[in-house]
Structure formats: structure tokens, C-alpha cells
Design a protein around this nucleic acid. Structure first.
Length: 377
RNA sequence: GUGGGUAUAGCGUAGUUGGUUAACGCGUCAGUUUGUGGCACUGAAGACCGUCGGUUCGAAUCCGACUAUCCACC
């Protein structure tokens, strides 16, 4: 159990992360399934074809519906969703940020108004751990506050210190829950989350404090939320030396293929992002040549696949012209086929990156593709 | 052939007591999307208002002819 560094090229790391639900080859991209399903009608069965390694679900959303107690009675998220490989649950901390108009943050935790029915609910560190324990995910995330950038130093500091106090409570509660006999997954892991906005000093101090707790992994949160990408890269480089080498590093919510290449070169192992799935639903597709928008009329007579070099189920069978038609006709198949392509693209990009690090050619690979993959063609 | 209706952007339409830069939807084009509040958001281009003539200071709007098209009847 745990992370094993296999090889490195400069700061880029090739590793294996072993969990009770199987081993994850890193660097890896985790596929987002907020409510227990990848949006766009993609099933757990499909995810095997897409070479998905980790599914990511959301504590806040599953707590509201269908309810974590309910999932626990049904045997946990793995049994419930039919996905037997690793599952990471996000803690609900991001919803503190994204649902900002509906919440009140206090020392004990956060008061939300449900976005579904307006019902008032409370979530603090203990509640988040209890919910994630009921869900029985492989990896639970600490309950944190994700502060929007730019933020005042005073608030960043106050929020950051409170998040550390919450993390200590998370760790204590998770240890307690894992010791109980009737817990769904008694080997549930806990990742801490680094915060501190764009203040290097705050970030480093925070990282030093959270790594004292000996958690199963460390995440960098609160990035890609409004700051320039140069700031994001600078922060990653600033905190990376303070993360233990024998623990996985997870950059939350990032990002574009270019962001991922840059971040791996700075020592990150795990990623997740809604971009491949959300953009696919709007016809924006990733290819090794760059980004295309399938809604454009120029694809209406294009018999080539989305990406000539891709062997995903969509590219093996269907043309751009057909997919363009499905979008125009508002057929749900358009979304399904395109989400499958984009996730396969991200997952196989990670495979290419792992092979490159294995072969010591990652730097070349990065320089070759970092600009191209984020550019429209 | 007779009577009636219609003619405004690529398509479908709005636009009368005649009054400055003719509106909307779809489509087109471009951009946005980063721990997902379910399928979006922002912007741009595009019209000598069927043709010709008339009335008027002024016509998409009123009048006439023509053309096209639809309906009904022969």
C-alpha cells in the first residue's frame, strides 16, 4: 500500500500508487464522475475501454442525492456504481467556493443551502469524513476552503490556518472511523490539501505543517481558480520540495493538456479536471494536433476521425461529419461519443507521458507538445 | 383563366394612425469553459425590406404595374 517512485527525469516522476482497490500507474488523470457517473452517458463498463484508472466522485453532491447513508446500506460506492477500481471522493470543499452565494463559513464548518431544494445543511471536517467513510471511497480528501484568487493576504492567512485546524480534525475522525468494525472501507486513505492562494511563503508554511501529519498523499488546491497560469506554475515549483518524495502529489482541478505537461515536469503525479468531459459535451475535442470544435461547418463533409492517431472506440468507427451531424441534430449520442474520445485522449496522453519518463524522453515530449495540444486548429 | 393571400439576412419569422443606426430564432464565424449547480455562456459577420414606377419633406409600411409563390374556384 502506498506510493513507490519507479523512475524520475529531472522533477518528473514515474510511480505506482497501490491501494486496497488496485494499483494506479502515475502520472495519472482521474476521470470526474461527480454524482457517481461520468456525464454524457458513460458507464463503468465503458470506463474500462477508456483505460480509466481512478474515478472521482463528490462528497457534497452524493450526500444530497442519493444520500451517503443510503450508499452505505447499498454496500458503498464501488458496489453501487459497478466500478471496482480506485475511487477518490472530493470533500465538498470546492463547493464552498463554487456555491459561494449559498454558504456561510464558520470555525466549526460550513453552512450550505442545498442547490437542489434549498434545505439548510451543515458540513464540517467530521461530517465530511463521516460521509466519505459511508461512501467507502478508496481515497478521501480533507475538508478545506478553496479561496478564489486574487485574495487579500489577511484573508488567505486566516482561511489557511482554519483549513489546517480542519485537517487535524479530519485526520482524527478518519482514524476513528477506520478503526470501527462496520466501516465500509477500513483502509480508506486521506489526502491533505495545501492552500495559501498565490502567496509563496504562505503556501510553503502550510505545506510544512500539513506534511507533519503523515497523510497518504498531498494535494495542491486553490489553483486554476482565477490566477494567471504563471502563478500556478510558480506555486507548484515553490511547494514541491516540501512534499515527501514517498507520497503522491495531486494537483486538484487541473487542467489543459499543456497545464498537465508543465505540472508533471514540476513533480505532480495526479490530476483531475472537468475539462475533457464538459468540453466534449459542447463539441470541443482534444487531438494530438490541437483542439477542434466539431460544431464548425467545415466538419460537415469531413470523413476523417476526430484524431487520426487515436484508437478510441469513437475514432475507430465514426467520422467528424457524422459527429457534426449528431451535434446539429442534438442527439445524445454526440455527447457520449465525444466524452469517450476526450477521456480516452487524456488517459492515453498520460500513458504516453509515463512511457516517455520510463524512456527518459519526457522533456522532449513536453517541448514537442506543450503548446500544440492547447492550441485550436 | 378567375378571385384572394404572401414577398424583409442562408432558412423561418417580427415589424401600420408612414419618421433617425430594420428586430428575433436557427444557421455561420470567433472566443470562453480548469477539485462539474447537465448539457452552456459571450461576442461578431450577414438585408440596396421581390422588381420597376408613383404619392410624400420622408416609404419595409400607402398606391399602381410587373414577377415569383401559395390557396380556392373554373
Amino acid at each position: 500500500m502506498g506510493y513507490k517512485l519507479l523512475k524520475s527525469e529531472k522533477n518528473a516522476r514515474r510511480g505506482e500508487f497501490t491501494t486496497v482497490h488496485g494499483t494506479v500507474q502515475t502520472p495519472a488523470f482521474m476521470n470526474v464522475a461527480t454524482c457517481g457517473a461520468i456525464k454524457g452517458a458513460v458507464s463503468a463498463y465503458d470506463m474500462m475501454d477508456l483505460r480509466t484508472q481512478v474515478m472521482l466522485c463528490n462528497t457534497y453532491h452524493l450526500h444530497l442525492r442519493p444520500g451517503d447513508e443510503n450508499v452505505r446500506e447499498l454496500g458503498g460506492l464501488h458496489k453501487f456504481t459497478g466500478w471496482d477500481k480506485p475511487i477518490l471522493t472530493d470533500s465538498g470543499g470546492f463547493q464552498v467556493f463554487s456555491l459561494a452565494s449559498l454558504r456561510k463559513i464558520k470555525e466549526e464548518g460550513v453552512y450550505f443551502a442545498s442547490h437542489i431544494d434549498g434545505r439548510r445543511i451543515f458540513m464540517g471536517p467530521e461530517e465530511s469524513m463521516q460521509i466519505q467513510s459511508n461512501l467507502g471511497s478508496t481515497i478521501a480528501m480533507a475538508f478545506d476552503e478553496c479561496v478564489e484568487n486574487p485574495a487579500e493576504l489577511d484573508y488567505a492567512k486566516l482561511s489557511c490556518e482554519r483549513t489546517v485546524r480542519w485537517l487535524i480534525r479530519c485526520k482524527k475522525e478518519m482514524d476513528r472511523l477506520n478503526s470501527l468494525e462496520d466501516t465500509v472501507n477500513r483502509d480508506q486513505m486521506l489526502f491533505g490539501i495545501n492552500q495559501g492562494c498565490t502567496y509563496d511563503k504562505l503556501r510553503i508554511e502550510n505545506m510544512c505543517r500539513i506534511t507533519e501529519l503523515d497523510l497518504d498523499g498531498y494535494a495542491i488546491g486553490g489553483l486554476a481558480v482565477g490566477e494567471p497560469k504563471e502563478d500556478m506554475y510558480r506555486i507548484i515549483s515553490a511547494v514541491e520540495p516540501y512534499i515527501p518524495k514517498n507520497k503522491p502529489r495531486y494537483l486538484m482541478g487541473v487542467g489543459t493538456p499543456g497545464n498537465i505537461l508543465e505540472s508533471i515536469s514540476r513533480g505532480v503525479d495526479l490530476f483531475d479536471c472537468v475539462m475533457p468531459s464538459r468540453n466534449a459535451r459542447h463539441g470541443h475535442l482534444f487531438t494530438m494536433e490541437g483542439i477542434i470544435n466539431l460544431n464548425n461547418a467545415k466538419y460537415s463533409h469531413d470523413l476523417s476521425p476526430i484524431d487520426e492517431s487515436c484508437d478510441c472506440p469513437t475514432c475507430r468507427k465514426h467520422s467528424r461529419a457524422y459527429l457534426h451531424h449528431l451535434f446539429k441534430a442534438k442527439e445524445m449520442l454526440a455527447m457520449r461519443l465525444c466524452v469517450m474520445h476526450n477521456l480516452y485522449f487524456y488517459n492515453s496522453l498520460m500513458e504516453k507521458i509515463r512511457t516517455a519518463i520510463d524512456n527518459g524522453t519526457f522533456e522532449n515530449f513536453k517541448n514537442r507538445y506543450v503548446e500544440q495540444l492547447d492550441t485550436r486548429i
